[in-house]
Design a protein around this nucleic acid. Structure first.
Length: 817
RNA sequence: GCGAAAGUGGCGGAAUUGGGAUACGCGCUGGACUUAGGAUCCAGUCCCGUUUCGGGUUGGGGGUUCGAAUCCCCCCUUUCGCACCA
């Protein structure tokens, strides 16, 4: 194809934009707009999925620029993490060098994409000027008692002799050596996200412009559940054991108790010798099972402890079992077994022949324990429940809870699924945890003036040996205690990379600050983020963590806002032609560089935008390229006929011929459509409407009074999508300043309204004809015209019109019989 | 199992306060032109038939309505998220 000279044009403008500092943020802003795209995790060069993500945000940024906003549109790199360390282990390269090299390559690719990032604000999380402040935030959390050390079960690979992250465990096996992974209890650092549970939950309602599915996922993840805690006692010792239930109405149906194998209570139980072995065996066996194995088990199992618990209401004595279908970390780590009304308990009882007791009877049918095939979990009437008999079960929950509260046998309780955030990693390539372990003073925080705690460089053995590589780096690990000045050791662990990415959006507002993480004043100018563009895979990770950090920094008065962003947009993924996710390991990741070199940036961008609405995934086949290049070529060629001196021509609508009038109207309709579609990120239809305009436009002569006028406006509304071509043509029109400094054109409100409308005629709801009439023609006239229509006559012949439906400017429907 | 989203030509997709189904583009068919190209221009392209006309069609079935891709009910399929949370 005869392509316009895109290579020269694109290179020229990228050079000029850089030289002019066109995308430099105006700070302080007069009218701010903060558009943020999720920064990149450095695992190699970017692929066309990233390309799509960034050009989606770019349209908004450029559109806002032209609408008089001072735009903050920054970019950066999430540069700590496993890929760099893996490369170090495999190829012996230094992780920092590896990461910075990848950033170089990726940055170049993005710069070739013509995205309007202000590169002066770039942040890189693995550099000390950034992670110093990640550590600073850790210290602030520690001061507020929100960072604490606690024991937890972590994934342990016996072959690699190391702890693994959850995402490194595939089907219960180590991702590298395929050994089975089991749980091990280790002391780790946690962030107390549970202190913020209620606020994180209730403030979801403030996130009005977040996609509903993400909000639902977060609510579900937090998992608030209202219920009752019941105090059972252990027979003999009288020790109180509490269980959480949402079905207090079934308390009289308890026929056993089940306790999680990890529950420390088991160690205090003083189990009789005849049960001891079996119980210990079971606990050990459970520890070796991984999470998925436990969940997918087709049969629930457990072991009787030989102990009994006393029901606080009925006084009945029931067996106490250990069972690994009970989740240790939820509620009190044990459950009351009500087989008749809980499916899980039902299955358990059937297997071990534990009795089933019906206490909720459905209306109009009688349950009998022997005949039940599954638990009856729906509401009904309480039976076999002493003083509560006859109560509707929903009401029963209330009444039983009231009763136990009054008699001090239990209490109302709210439980959550959300657990505290384990942030320790036994890895080298992360931000060191700024804590010191002193034999005399215990755990002592590094003093603020001593930050950053630098990651040691040089010859480091990265191979995991069951503890952090840093533990063996003498010059790092050995230090003095800030309190007693005696010998002490640094914490050898580093932080989860999600910590680094929880506050980068604030750093962008003041990226060079070496006195504080960011100035409060600057942050308050820009926050909250006006639009955040990124993938939905972060729904319950990053998108929860950065909300937590925002609230925390708000509480310690570093931020005025308590939610990071008012608007979130989830872009769709780019899949390969087979519909598979692109990844480096699969080898199907397409680089945008090849595409850009071959087709040009603007054509590539248009093809991407046009393929589907931004939130949908794209199967990248490259088929859209042809249409995109024809479209831009056509504009380039038509623009060669433009007469810049005609730009100031004044014309009156009534002087235009019919085709010109139509063209004028189409232009303004398209301007309106593009405006609206940019707001909803429906770029595919925005481009479609420009194509429609172009089809109409090619019908008018280049001598037309409105020829140049139309092109000027088209180029402006095209510019956020195809910035290089638009800029080139703009210059060709004689404009001295960048098109992105020009004012976004306003559409003519009168022009978008048609003066003639097409009425459709239906007979009994079926289309039978149409005609053109001036807008706002009244019903009487339209009806008369409809009845005179030949085709309509054919269908109304010998029939009576019973009813006429009239929709102004749209249709008339004759109901006949 | 629970939760969410979606299902429209050969393909990507458009149309949602209920009002012309298939905009726009790709592909395909025919023609023109030609400096033979990944060119450009013109015409056609949902399906069926007896083809200036008529009938049918938005995963399937039912309903509401003058009128349903759009609203309601049931079913099927696909994708995503959560997954023994008591």
């Amino acid at each position: 194809m005869q392509m316009y000279p895109f290579k020269e044009i694109e290179a020229k403008w990228q050079r000029r934009w850089e030289k002019q500092k066109l995308y430099k943020t105006t700070d302080p802003p007069k009218k701010k707009y903060y558009i943020l795209v999720m920064f990149a995790y450095t695992s190699g060069d970017i692929h066309i999925g990233h390309f799509r993500n960034y050009i989606i945000g770019d349209v908004i940024a450029r559109h806002r620029m032209m609408n008089g906003y001072d735009v903050l549109h920054p970019f950066g790199w999430d540069a700590f993490g496993l890929p760099a360390e893996e490369a170090a282990i495999k190829h012996g390269v230094n992780p920092e060098k590896w990461a910075l090299k990848n950033i170089e390559v990726s940055r170049k690719t993005i710069q070739k994409s013509g995205v309007s990032f202000d590169w002066d604000r770039e942040v890189i999380t693995c550099l000390p000027d950034y992670y110093k402040w990640t550590q600073w935030i850790f210290l602030k959390l520690y001061e507020s008692c929100l960072a604490y050390r606690g024991k937890s079960l972590v994934n342990w690979c016996p072959h690699c002799n190391t702890v693994l992250a959850n995402e490194q465990v595939k089907g219960g096996r180590c991702w590298r050596c395929e050994q089975e992974v089991f749980k091990k209890e280790l002391e780790q650092w946690f962030f107390k996200i549970t202190a913020y549970t209620e606020r994180l939950l209730s403030d979801i309602d403030k996130l009005v412009d977040w996609p509903e599915p993400i909000k639902i996922m977060q609510r579900h993840w937090i998992g608030r559940s209202e219920g009752t805690e019941m105090d059972f006692t252990i027979e003999g010792t009288g020790e109180k054991i509490s269980v959480f239930t949402t079905r207090a109405d079934t308390i009289f149906g308890v026929t056993f108790m089940a306790i999680a194998p990890e529950n420390p209570l088991l160690q205090r139980l003083d189990i009789e010798p005849e049960y001891k072995n079996e119980v210990d065996e079971y606990i050990k066996k459970s520890a070796f099972k991984d999470e998925t194995e436990r969940i997918s088990a087709t049969e629930k199992d457990g072991v009787f402890t030989g102990k009994y618990a006393i029901n606080p209401l009925s006084g009945e004595k029931v067996q106490l079992w250990v069972a690994d279908y009970v989740v240790a970390a939820y509620g009190t780590g044990m459950v009351m077994g009500v087989p008749a009304h809980d499916q899980r308990d039902f299955e358990f009882c059937r297997k071990y022949k534990i009795p089933i007791k019906v206490v909720i009877q459905p209306r109009g049918m009688t349950l009998s324990p022997n005949k039940m095939k599954e638990a009856y979990v729906k509401p009904g009437v309480m039976v076999n429940s002493d003083r509560f008999n006859g109560l509707q079960s929903e009401k029963g929950i209330e009444k039983v809870t009231e009763y136990v509260e009054k008699n001090k046998l239990g209490r109302k309780k709210v439980n959550y699924k959300l657990r505290d955030w384990l942030i320790s990693r036994q890895r080298y390539w992360g931000a060191p945890i700024p804590m010191i372990h002193c034999e005399k003073c215990g755990i002592v925080p590094v003093q603020e003036k001593d930050l950053p705690v630098l990651l040691p460089k040089g010859n480091i053995d990265f191979l995991p040996r069951g503890r952090s590589p840093l533990a063996d780096v003498e010059e790092f690990i050995n230090t003095t205690c800030p309190k007693c000045k005696g010998k002490a050791k640094r914490d050898p662990d580093t932080m989860d990379t999600f910590v680094c990415s929880s506050w980068y959006l604030f750093r962008y507002t003041d990226p060079k600050n070496d006195k504080e993480p960011f100035s409060k004043k600057k942050a308050s100018r820009w926050l909250p983020v006006d639009k955040y563009v990124g993938g939905s895979e972060h729904a319950t990770g990053h998108l929860l963590y950065f909300r937590l950090f925002t609230k925390f920094l708000h509480d310690i008065k570093w931020l005025s806002v308590d939610e990071p962003t008012r608007e979130l947009f989830n872009h769709g993924m780019v899949l390969d032609s087979k519909g598979e996710v692109m990844s480096k390991s699969k080898g199907n990741a397409l680089s945008p560089t090849d595409l850009i070199d071959k087709e040009g940036v603007d054509v590539s961008r248009i093809a991407m935008y046009f393929a589907a609405p931004s939130e949908k995934e794209i199967l990248w086949t490259g088929e859209g390229i042809t249409g995109a290049s024809r479209f831009l070529n056509k504009i380039y060629n038509l623009a060669q006929q433009a007469e810049p001196e005609n730009l100031n021509l004044k014309f009156k609508l009534k002087d235009l011929n019919e085709e010109e009038k139509k063209t004028y109207r189409k232009l303004h309709q398209s301007m309106k459509k593009v405006d609206e579609d940019i707001e909803t990120l429906q770029y595919n239809t925005a481009i479609a409407s420009m194509m429609e305009f172009l089809n109409q436009f090619s019908l008018i002569s280049s001598d037309s009074l409105i020829y140049t006028y139309c092109l000027k406006n088209l180029i402006q509304i095209l510019s956020p999508f195809a910035p290089h071509l638009a800029e080139e043509l703009w210059e060709g029109f004689g404009f001295k300043e960048s098109i992105f400094k020009s004012k976004w054109p306003e559409y003519d409100k009168n022009a978008v309204i048609e003066d003639m409308v097409t009425f459709i005629i239906q007979v009994n709801g079926k289309l039978r004809g149409s005609f053109e009439v001036p807008v706002n023609t009244d019903q009487e006239k339209v009806e008369r015209m409809a009845l005179e229509n030949e085709k309509v006559k054919h269908f109304t012949k010998d029939k009576r019109v019973l009813k006429t439906i009239f929709v102004p400017n749209k249709l008339i429907n004759l109901v006949v019989r």
